[in-house]
């Protein structure tokens, strides 16, 4: 049961982080500037990290 809960938590966390990243990209776009561009690029990077962390088990 513990294993199961942990798995579910990880899935939820990943989905949440990914959703937050997309939201950050959309929101940061509304202000023009290097700062918001940096934030957007960071969100893109985090998305890729989430993808990599999902993929790690399959390497």
């Amino acid at each position: 049961m513990k294993e199961f809960t942990r798995g579910a938590l990880v899935v939820t966390a990943r989905t949440l982080v990914a959703a937050v990243c997309v939201a950050v990209v959309v929101i940061a776009r509304t202000t023009v500037g290097w700062g918001s561009l940096a934030i957007m690029l960071c969100a893109l990077l985090v998305l890729l990290v989430v993808l990599a962390s999902y993929n790690r088990r399959f390497r």
Binding site: V22, V25, V26, V32, G33, M40, L44, L47
Partner: peptide, 23 residues
Amino acid sequence: LFEDAQFVRAFQNTVALLVVVTV
């Protein structure tokens, strides 16, 4: 490029479209 606000905006739009449309 660093002082060109229009360039930053175009870059932001590109990233936004890339992320949202891909997802």
